[in-house]
Design a protein around this nucleic acid. Structure first.
Lengths: 197, 197
DNA sequence: ACCTGAACACCGTTCAAGT
DNA sequence: ACCTGAACACCGTTCAAGT
């Protein structure tokens, strides 16, 4: 795991191959298959380690939706801490393998902000998709910037002064805003569009 | 492109290799490199074709945020129309290659619902991340379901009756709700958290 | 318990050469 | 203009065999 995180951070996810990892450990590639059934499970464990330090400052009651915002920010920080961190978590998230910790933590934060558990779970899913998508985008742009690739800036985009952090906060605010108006804190569970099913 | 979409839909993105595509066209793999500089650009063009039919029903003025909701739904449908469609678009989205059509169309829909252009662009980015993340998740679950893989259902999730469509609608509603309270239609541009930089 | 050696069945990409 | 042939430098994974 330590060696894998090293390779990931130094050279990126595409270079994190079983053969390269084996070489870093002075071992034959086949040796890794005694410790992990396959590459996917190795990545899943890596994802857990990346998400793990995403502990939010502290649970605070009262201030509106502050726990949710803090948790989203902490998760972003955790993903940004390793190169291609978002991509690693994204790849394992869909498999049901690992990284449910991220969703669980977001859910807990939303509940701590006073929302019903079922609503919280669904909102956490939406928030998680946004967070991973956004950070993934950030990191891929970083990679292309560092490679000197001229990424064609969106042709008709006049100002590009919103930096990543504020754009991230904007997205979180949209979701939190929707949350606050949909099921307001301490209200019973309520579906968003009655009769939609 | 036709052959590539065929392979994608029949066997999924992992099986869409240059060699397999060449074989389907009765051609040597190297022949493809006369038509495309590399695999990435081939995928980018594929992504454009997948997103293309995402035309929303019709622009309607008046009903609150209906254009945005319709466009998001149309985009979801387009991604679902091909196996691993979301993954294809996701992979090219970050590169700045192609698939800016999706963001542009979402932006246009939000503007049509009466929002300021700058706000619309940032909201479209957030919405796009959610849509792609959600559909990507849906499709990966499909793949594992069809393979008979027992995906460990979230341990402490009592009811799992919200189907994908309604969960998708819920996420869209959250973002649209946040949009409605943040910068209400026809109001001038306004930052979300003054002094946040 | 943990690893090696050797193989299997693949990849994307390049490039001289053909027609 | 469009393609072949042949190669380069890789992949993930399996499995008998070693210690």
């Amino acid at each position: 795991m330590r060696a894998a995180l090293q390779i990931l951070d130094d050279d990126g996810l595409p270079d994190l191959t079983m053969r390269r990892l084996a070489a870093a450990l002075d071992v034959q590639p086949s040796a890794l298959y005694w410790h992990f059934p396959n590459k996917q499970s190795l990545l899943a464990e890596l994802a857990d380690r990346i998400v793990a330090p995403a502990a939010p400052p502290r649970p605070a009651e009262g201030s509106s939706s502050s726990n949710t915002r803090a948790e989203a920010g902490a998760l972003r920080d955790a993903l940004l801490a390793y190169r291609d961190g978002a991509e690693v978590v994204s790849s394992t998230l869909a498999l049901g393998l690992g990284s449910s910790a991220a969703r669980d933590r977001l859910t807990a934060a939303i509940i701590a902000d006073g929302y019903d558990a079922d609503l919280a779970r669904r909102a956490a899913t939406a928030l998680l998709h946004f967070v991973i998508g956004h950070v993934s985008h950030e990191q891929q742009r970083m990679q292309y910037d560092s490679l000197g690739v001229v990424v064609p800036d969106l042709s008709l985009s006049p100002q590009r002064d919103h930096d990543d952090a504020s754009e991230f906060a904007f997205g979180v605010d949209l979701l939190v805003g929707g949350l606050e108006q949909n099921g307001s804190p301490r209200s019973p569970a309520q579906t968003h569009r009655p009769g939609a099913h």
